[in-house]
């Protein structure tokens, strides 16, 4: 019942709609590039000058900025994907009734879910790309595997957008979005972003490893520093499953909310 259409065949129409909207408001998108860059300067280089080198394990150690930058890139992918999958989606869902109009056409909830999640992850990926270029220019990329950091950031964007969209379908008022910050801020601070996971006692390490951004950070850091291992495949698997799960739930939620 969810997808009477071949899944998401027309999802790209939602992306076209969003492109049309942002064609006038590109400056809004542009502003999102700066935040991670400022963090990189302030924390990566500023605080980094006090910290010195950080061990990646196995006798491999790198300057603090090299350690922090990929984590900021992962956080950028997440935050970038959340812009459109939280506030903007809520506005379209509850106030503008955008999807009521969309669902009166041949498009279905699966198209809406896939289209909006894809759009959100595109935005996250765009910021990640910008940040990766800055990282490379500042000499913070020390492995050619960093080329794969962009698709990895897209994957982080995918899982974040999917989870963000599901959460948004449960929101009832704008104040509920305070919860997004309550969740994302600790993720940004404690997902082995600014310090290695070895800082935590063992039980807490196990807990952090269950959270999503940890896997994003681990994946991108592994690629930009060339610190590869089978753990990266676990990271990929975790993010793919989380995103697919979020997408499926989103379709169900939209069906429940809009096709009563």
């Amino acid at each position: 019942m969810i997808a009477s259409l071949p899944f998401g065949r027309r999802a790209s129409r939602l992306i076209e709609r969003n492109l049309l909207v942002y064609r006038r408001g590109w400056i809004i998108i542009f502003s999102g590039f700066f935040e991670p860059f400022f963090y990189l300067l302030g924390i990566g280089f500023g605080i980094g000058s006090l910290v010195g080198n950080v061990s990646l394990g196995a006798g491999h150690s790198v300057p603090y900025a090299v350690f922090v930058a990929p984590a900021l890139m992962a956080g950028t992918a997440m935050n970038g994907a959340l812009y459109d999958s939280t506030f903007n989606l809520f506005f379209k869902l509850r106030y503008a009734k955008t999807y009521d109009a969309v669902l009166a056409t041949p498009l279905g909830v699966a198209d809406v879910a896939l289209g909006e999640v894809t759009w959100a992850l595109m935005r996250g990926s765009l910021y990640s790309l910008g940040f990766l270029v800055v990282m490379a220019a500042l000499g913070l990329v020390i492995s050619p595997w960093a080329l794969l950091a962009l698709p990895a950031a897209t994957l982080i964007g995918f899982s974040s957008a999917a989870v963000g969209t599901v959460a948004t379908t449960f929101m009832r008022k704008w104040q509920d979005f305070d919860l997004v910050i309550v969740v994302t801020l600790p993720l940004l601070l404690f997902s082995a972003t600014f310090f290695p996971i070895s800082v935590y006692p063992a039980p807490l390490q196990a807990f952090v490893q269950l959270t999503p951004l940890y896997h994003g950070v681990d994946l991108i850091r592994g690629l930009t520093t060339g610190n590869l291992g089978p753990g990266l495949l676990v990271d990929v698997g975790y993010l793919v499953l989380l995103g697919a799960f979020g997408l499926a739930i989103t379709s169900r939620r939209l069906q429940h909310l809009l096709l009563k």
Partner: peptide
């Protein structure tokens, strides 16, 4: 669609 112009409303709906 309040985020689009009058004509864009029709064009994008046609795309749907």
């Amino acid at each position: 669609d309040m985020e689009l112009s009058v004509r864009e409303n029709l064009v994008i709906y046609g795309r749907y």
